[in-house]
Computed example of a mutant assay.
Amino acid sequence: MTLKQTLTEDMKAAMKSGDKTRLGVIRLVNAAIKQKEVDERVELDDPAVLAVLEKMVKQRRDSISQFDAAGRADLSAIEHTEMAIIEHYLPAKLGEAAILDAIDAAVAETGASGPADMGKLMAVLKPRLAGQADMGEVSKLVKQRLAG
C-alpha cells in the first residue's frame, strides 16, 4: 500500500471515529500532496510524498519556535499535535551512527575527498536518507567528515 493510500484509509477511519484533529491534519496533508501534483503535473510516488511530509514537519517546527518565542503556548500545542500526526507517516529517524555509516559509504562510492565534493556527496545521500534523517544535520556531518 502506498503512502497516499495509507493516508486515504486513515482519513476514512478518522471520519468514522470522529477524530476531528487527525482528520483535519490528514486533509491538510492530502491537500499539500494534491497541490504539488497539480503544480508539477505528475503523480507523486512515496519518496515525493515523504518530501512533502518533511516540509510540513519543518513548517510546524518553525511555527513552534516562533509561537514559543512569542509566549503563545496554546498555538504551540496545536502545532505540536499536528506535527506528531504528520511524523506518524514518516519512517523512523536514523541515529547519528547510522547517518555516519551512510556518509562513509557514500564517500567510498564517490571518492569525495574535500569540501569541494560536498555537492556530489549530498546528491548521493539525499535520496538514500530521505525521510530518515534531517538533511540539515546530514549536511553538518558531511562538512565535518570532509573537513577532517
Score class of each variant (00 low, 15 high):
residue 49 V to F: 02
residue 147 A to L: 15
residue 9 E to K: 14
residue 108 A to E: 10
residue 123 A to W: 05
residue 86 I to Y: 11
residue 31 A to S: 10
residue 82 E to V: 08
residue 94 L to E: 05
residue 64 I to Y: 05
residue 28 L to C: 04
residue 51 A to K: 09
residue 147 A to T: 14
residue 4 K to S: 09
residue 54 E to H: 03
residue 47 P to A: 03
residue 105 A to N: 12
residue 38 V to A: 13
residue 71 G to S: 10
residue 28 L to D: 12
residue 146 L to R: 00
residue 147 A to M: 14
residue 107 V to W: 01
residue 11 M to S: 15
residue 27 R to P: 03
residue 15 M to K: 13
residue 77 A to G: 07
residue 114 G to T: 09
residue 89 Y to F: 09
residue 20 K to S: 10
residue 92 A to Y: 02
residue 63 S to E: 11
residue 27 R to L: 03
residue 48 A to I: 02
residue 122 M to T: 01
residue 65 S to V: 10
residue 98 A to Y: 05
residue 38 V to N: 12
residue 9 E to L: 07
residue 41 R to T: 11
residue 55 K to C: 06
residue 44 L to F: 01
residue 140 K to C: 05
residue 137 E to Y: 15
residue 10 D to Y: 09
residue 35 Q to Y: 06
residue 87 E to L: 08
residue 106 A to N: 00
residue 124 V to F: 04
residue 13 A to L: 14
residue 68 D to E: 11
residue 103 I to Q: 11
residue 5 Q to K: 10
residue 118 M to E: 13
residue 11 M to T: 10
residue 33 I to D: 00
residue 125 L to R: 09
residue 6 T to S: 12
residue 62 D to K: 10
residue 41 R to Q: 12
residue 106 A to C: 00
residue 21 T to M: 11
residue 58 K to T: 06
residue 90 L to A: 05
residue 103 I to M: 08
residue 4 K to I: 13
residue 29 V to G: 00
residue 57 V to M: 03
residue 133 A to I: 05
residue 74 D to Q: 06
residue 123 A to L: 09
residue 25 V to I: 15
residue 95 G to T: 09
residue 93 K to A: 15
residue 88 H to W: 07
residue 148 G to W: 04
residue 40 E to T: 08
residue 93 K to M: 04
residue 70 A to P: 01
residue 139 S to P: 00
residue 96 E to I: 13
residue 9 E to H: 14
residue 142 V to N: 02
residue 59 Q to G: 03
residue 69 A to D: 12
residue 58 K to S: 13
residue 65 S to Q: 13
residue 114 G to W: 03
residue 35 Q to R: 14
residue 125 L to C: 11
residue 98 A to G: 07
residue 102 A to Y: 02
residue 59 Q to P: 00
residue 129 L to Q: 01
residue 44 L to H: 03
residue 47 P to H: 03
residue 69 A to G: 14
residue 1 M to L: 03
residue 21 T to L: 13
residue 15 M to R: 14
